[in-house]
């Protein structure tokens, strides 16, 4: 339960205080199905909800869920407003410089293109992406015509109404949409952009990282993680 060595030190000073139960706060976005979303009952649901609850159970942690805007999800972690980011966040080099990641709990999820027809020539096409995502960076670097929208919803709408020819996003996010809407199809081409997805923790929270790493490992070992991945269809299995 001593997730900070420092915590223990402080508590040792305050002899009169009871051994307060430490709560680990899990920060997520709540707008990225099937990873995390708000269900009809208004609660956080999805692959990561189940995963997080299971990890907390195994690590014997008392966990609390909070939602935070994607744009400020890392600044709020390092500022201490919650302790773990569990929001489908790919492990990338630039993020790793600022926060620490646990081992990945899904293998890299490829990025796919969703378009109105299969024969889109990406070199000449207008490709949509959510602003400030790894996909947006990828398109910019390719030199294609990038158009950025503030939310994922708007990128899909842009393809539907013809503003953009295709949208590039995580495969697991686009697949259910392609299944549901007959007009929209996935291109065969996929990009391997992100790394696997891991939990983000503060660099100073070494203890918590180890605890969570062990819990993820135990889920990998007994196969329960693979089952969860299959259930929500978020990535390939390990």
């Amino acid at each position: 339960m001593k997730r900070l060595i420092a915590t223990a030190a402080v508590l040792a000073f305050s002899a009169g205080m009871g051994w307060a139960e430490e709560t680990v706060r899990l920060g997520t976005e709540g707008a990225y199905p099937p990873w995390n979303f708000i269900n009809d009952a208004g609660e956080i649901d999805g692959f990561e909800r189940e995963l997080g609850d299971e990890l907390c159970e195994r690590a014997d942690l008392d966990c609390e869920w909070v939602t935070n805007d994607w744009d400020s999800i890392i600044p709020n972690l390092v500022s201490g407003n919650y302790d773990v980011i569990i929001a489908g966040m790919s492990i990338t080099g630039e993020r790793d410089e600022v926060i620490d990641f646990t081992q990945n709990y899904t293998p890299p999820d490829p990025s796919s293109y969703l378009a109105l027809s299969k024969d889109v020539n990406l070199d000449e096409a207008v490709v949509a992406a959510q602003a400030n995502t790894i996909q947006a960076n990828f398109i910019a670097e390719k030199g294609w015509t990038l158009v950025e929208y503030a939310t994922p919803e708007e990128t899909i709408a842009a393809v539907r109404n013809g503003e953009a020819d295709a949208v590039l996003a995580d495969h697991s996010f686009l697949a259910p949409i392609a299944d549901e809407e007959g007009d929209l199809v996935l291109l065969d081409r996929q990009e391997r952009i992100g790394g696997g997805v891991g939990l983000g923790v503060r660099e100073s929270d070494e203890e918590l990282k180890k605890t969570l790493d062990a819990a993820i490992q135990s889920m990998k070992d007994d196969g329960s993680l693979n089952e969860l991945i299959k259930k929500w269809d978020v990535a390939t299995t390990f």
Binding site: L4, A6, T7, V10, L11, F13, S14, A20, E21, E22, T23, R25, E64, V66, V78, S79, G80, D83, V98, I99, R202, E203, S204
Partner: peptide, 28 residues
């Protein structure tokens, strides 16, 4: 006052548990 570690550790902003607002043990 007895805290001997830096508050800014790299990117992290770390204060002692008693100084957290609200306390991390506080209900949601």
């Amino acid at each position: 006052p007895d805290w001997d570690q830096p508050i800014r550790q790299g990117n992290d902003f770390v204060v002692c548990a008693a100084a957290k607002l609200p306390l991390s043990s506080a209900p949601q």
